[in-house]
Design a protein around this nucleic acid. Sequence first.
DNA 1: TATGAATGAGCATTCATTCAT
DNA 2: CATGAATGAATGCTCATTCAT
Lengths: 206, 206, 206, 206
Amino acid sequence: MNRRKPSQKRAKNSVEAIINAGFISLAKNGLANTTTIHIADIAGISPGTLYQYFDNKEAVYTAMERYFVNDILALLNSVVPEFIQLDIRAGVTFLLHKLSEKLLEDNGRYLKFARHGAHIFDENLSQHAHEIEKKLQEIIMQYVMHHPELMRIKSIPTFNYLIINGGILIIIRYLSESSPTISLEQLIDGLGNMAIRYIAGEMQDA
Amino acid sequence: MNRRKPSQKRAKNSVEAIINAGFISLAKNGLANTTTIHIADIAGISPGTLYQYFDNKEAVYTAMERYFVNDILALLNSVVPEFIQLDIRAGVTFLLHKLSEKLLEDNGRYLKFARHGAHIFDENLSQHAHEIEKKLQEIIMQYVMHHPELMRIKSIPTFNYLIINGGILIIIRYLSESSPTISLEQLIDGLGNMAIRYIAGEMQDA
Amino acid sequence: MNRRKPSQKRAKNSVEAIINAGFISLAKNGLANTTTIHIADIAGISPGTLYQYFDNKEAVYTAMERYFVNDILALLNSVVPEFIQLDIRAGVTFLLHKLSEKLLEDNGRYLKFARHGAHIFDENLSQHAHEIEKKLQEIIMQYVMHHPELMRIKSIPTFNYLIINGGILIIIRYLSESSPTISLEQLIDGLGNMAIRYIAGEMQDA
Amino acid sequence: MNRRKPSQKRAKNSVEAIINAGFISLAKNGLANTTTIHIADIAGISPGTLYQYFDNKEAVYTAMERYFVNDILALLNSVVPEFIQLDIRAGVTFLLHKLSEKLLEDNGRYLKFARHGAHIFDENLSQHAHEIEKKLQEIIMQYVMHHPELMRIKSIPTFNYLIINGGILIIIRYLSESSPTISLEQLIDGLGNMAIRYIAGEMQDA
DNA sequence: TATGAATGAGCATTCATTCAT
DNA sequence: CATGAATGAATGCTCATTCAT
């Protein structure tokens, strides 16, 4: 039952085209109106062809998630060296800006997908998405290595959880709002403040 | 076209039963498998009956949201007097515990709905949901009135946005995880810390 | 399974109210939107009550037809004496005017029913409707008795068929048109002409 | 939303098959029992396929009407040259025979549709059907051109209305009867007589 | 490989009919 | 007798998926 792995150039193009079409359809038509036929249409192929590369619709979503996660991971990797040099506030601000940019790329094609997130799969956050969390934890640990004084923070796991999930969820939520009550700058600034003050407090206690 | 308003006991029960069945089906079957037939089944009625009380499926979702929002608003209202007497850390902790409890009530029937949130409607957060945000802002403002020293916080809107959205989103996210890496206590504690330290920092600056 | 025959005043009223509501709903909502619930609503009763007087929906239609046919027969009977005294053109004109008036009575409540005619029953013209035809034949024969020279018409059955069906069908059709190209007077005049000239011709031949 | 235009042989066949099945179902099952599933069944396709070619059920009816009207128009066009050469009685007789034949074609598949006519659409005669009326008016005018003495008829519009509607309605009605009281020959003869005598009378008056 | 017409199970919704009150 | 909430079979329609070409 498993579809052949695309081994040819055209095939690779088709796969990419389908994944891309998935993001576009989701952003344009919404989850309910994202049908395989729509996706195939946008990808410029026939529905039959779509099924030569994907077992079923969910496999397309999974591939989209894989693609999205890889893109974010690549972004994070590329950004680590610069990030590590920055102080906390600048670092947080820097990362959140990068994330916002990525989510708004190409008419926000990732944004809707990120918002729908696990809802598409009707389960807990997918394993793929956890990779982003892990990568961020890793990056934070690298940061801590470069800034040993931070080791005095009492509960690094809690801090990680808060700053990572809080940061990502709020940004996604914010970007999805049609008429937000504060500006993106204010939001990112606020998150930066929050991080720096939390850390300052934790270190004072220690 | 409008369905009859329930004027009898049995009818009122049906409406409640349908709304309740909506939450249950969502939690059990997921969004994609929450069909009118499933809902009717769980409610112990026939599909025809569902349509005597609701114009269409979306109307059921809207009623569910209304019901959920009302429940949360009632919770918040009932909790204000106690909340206002507490210090910040205790207050935040108190509210987040109340929220968690509510979301976990009845086998977490609200949780999935809260997670899916506006996604069900394929649009921005519905007006109803904004009511919760407004109520929380209101409560925070009341709190500030009782604790005038807080007026020195520079950007109250940003603080509100962060603490309200951050708090809610992280809690929902956390409760939805199947194997979280930290405990709920740690999470709520961390959020309490974050709030108190953010405020402390802001007030120091002022 | 047969419903009780209404033997009481209220019952009789209900039956009439239902039949009447049937005509009204048909005229107002069209065949497709004439549901038993609508009919009951208009009749000011509950659907349950409707089924105490009628076995099913079709029985309502049948009763409507019976009622309609009786009304037309009564009209024809009441009109015979005057009709018989008139000359042919005047007689035809007279009858067609009477028919038009009846069809337009009460906001044309009969008209839609007459147009839908057998379509409601999905069969050939119902037996009831044939009674009208027979009555008209009878009237024509009475007329011939009073005007013996008409006996010279060669094919009275054919003449009857043409004048009866032609007259009725064209009138119903005409009254149902939203923007007819000629006036009702012209139409009735034309039909009168047609009758008189047909007869004149037939008698000349004889 | 628009269904794909049939571009392939198979598709074209499907469209024709569906339209044809529509006529057959209407004749066999009646209006109330002509469901999309029945139509698809008769056409030998699945309901899904029906909806690849038609937006909805009404679109099938519209296509049927278009098809029917086109067929009648083609018949009329093909018949004009011969018709124009004939005298009035022969012309009327000729046309009515042609019409009867067409309506009885293929087990009378058109007949039920013609009877239901606009009732299917629950409105006045559809625009398509008016095309037949117009075409007949046109033909009559051509006839008059070839027989200039007819110009002396006083009211050509009224004559047209009577002869066109009367002729068509009576024929349809007659063919739909299960046990008519006269023969088709007699009916058509009678209509021929009526036409010729009406005209003779009108011209005498002039 | 690519196509796209065909499929058919499944959905939202309606409405004639019933029956406990 | 009257009610009207409840029923559930049936309808119009969609869409993920298949397969002959």
